[in-house]
């Protein structure tokens, strides 16, 4: 489903974040990318989401080489991915409902469907009673759950999450990772990066460890 073949990512300043990564993630798999800060975890996820382009090698998602996809195709690809960002990237001038509805508006869903899907997604992450709340009034954990609701509202086949437990305490982190596990159990491919070794041990998923831009294990 996601394949990296000898992928290199070099930034304009010359820094090589990925130095020839080759790995494959199968459909329905849950994979955790681990490694120290600067190991290349976020870069790897950005390449998988088509947010950054590889400098060398290739990245295939659903057998599509991302380097060959045009702008419109990239939009379609991202609409079929669920993206959870480390810094949430919520819109603070919109309430929870409107934040979660954004991907559906972009995908031009009918208004009636939007309401149903948004509430279903908010319910899934336990925020149904906060649909009118603005992100500024939500806690860090709630903001993360809101971000997850926005990622799953399109019912994507692939979920990509960059440090979803990064700003959370241990117990809340466990709740979030359990949430990802539940999505994976219904067939969603999950690719996430984390530092949370303790909770990860509980999850029993495949782990890929990165060191200095290379796959270590």
């Amino acid at each position: 489903m996601i394949t990296f073949s000898n992928t290199v990512k070099r930034y304009p300043n010359g820094f090589e974040a990925l130095k020839g990564v080759t790995l494959s993630i199968a459909k329905g798999e849950m994979v955790a990318i681990t490694g120290h800060s600067g190991a290349g975890k976020s870069t790897l996820l950005k390449l998988a989401a088509g947010i950054e382009a590889a400098s060398k090698g290739s990245v295939l998602v659903n057998n599509q080489n991302l380097a060959e996809i045009k702008e419109t195709g990239l939009g379609v690809l991202r609409r079929n991915l669920g993206l959870v960002f480390q810094d949430h990237k919520l819109l603070f001038d919109r309430n929870a409902f409107e934040n979660v509805a954004l991907p559906l508006s972009i995908a031009q869903f009918p208004r009636a469907d939007i309401g149903k899907r948004v509430r279903a997604a908010l319910d899934k992450v336990g925020l149904l009673d906060r649909e009118k709340a603005h992100p500024i009034t939500l806690s860090g954990g709630e903001q993360q759950r809101l971000c997850i609701a926005r990622a799953i509202v399109n019912r994507p086949a692939i979920l990509i999450a960059d440090e979803p437990t990064g700003h959370l305490d241990q117990s809340y982190g466990a709740t979030i990772l359990d949430l990802f596990k539940s999505f994976n159990q219904v067939g969603v491919t999950v690719l996430l990066s984390t530092h949370d070794e303790l909770n990860l041990a509980r999850l029993k998923c495949r782990r890929i460890h990165l060191e200095m831009g290379r796959v270590a294990t």
Binding site: E71, T72, R78, L83, K89, L102, I106
Partner: peptide, 16 residues
């Protein structure tokens, strides 16, 4: 700017 960036990240085309 934020709305544009987020929209682009989650699949909005330039046209949108």
């Amino acid at each position: 700017k934020d709305e544009i960036e987020v929209s682009r990240l989650i699949g909005a085309t330039k046209r949108f």
